[in-house]
Amino acid sequence: MPGLKTVDLQLPATTEQLRGLDIGTVVYLTGRVFTAREGVYKRVVEERHGLPAAPEILGRVNFHCSPAATIEPDGSFTMGAVSATASFRFAKWLDGWFTLSGCNIIIGKGGMTSADYRKLFVPHNAIYLTTVGYGTGALLGRGITRVADVLWVEELGLAQAVWVLDVVRFGPFLVESDLAGNSLFERENAKIAANIAALYEGTKPATLRRYGETDDKTDEVI
């Protein structure tokens, strides 16, 4: 695609490699990633169960994902499509999670706020990659060459379990936050905001109001 820089990243990525990634860059990953979302965060960060496996086994890339996958009776796996789930809901666990897991890349849907990046990601030299679409589940499914392990299935169920995945040219992703905590989505929101007042010109707020809502259309709802 003309205009968009594309980078192939070998995992685990060093801080130096991450420093070279500007927001809006297209990224493909090769190496090991693992899924973890609210079920895992609650267990690890709140309930202090420890990690489901050693960091060397899990890798340093945490994917906010529940795959469309099956464990066959013989213990083998059928991996279908994989897409991310919206990440903003998980911010409250991330500081503890980074400390315990050593992750430096989070992959998800939709990102978090730049305030969260500065508070939670920057101190841990971590960046956020957003999936594209959403979602390119079939393309991402193709990028998975092997399911190395599935952990905590009994405890958390298939959707919340930890899927440890070996991937080759897994993507595409877009760099949503850089090591300075800038957000691609917020940059785009700011540009779009300029047009919004004109869209609403001449209309008046609904007769029946709602508690607690913003009426500033340049705000976000997350």
Partner: peptide
């Protein structure tokens, strides 16, 4: 295209 070729769900959130 990938979904149809592979007979794979098009999105992981089905």
């Amino acid at each position: 295209e990938a979904a149809k070729e592979d007979r794979r769900a098009m999105c992981g959130d089905t």
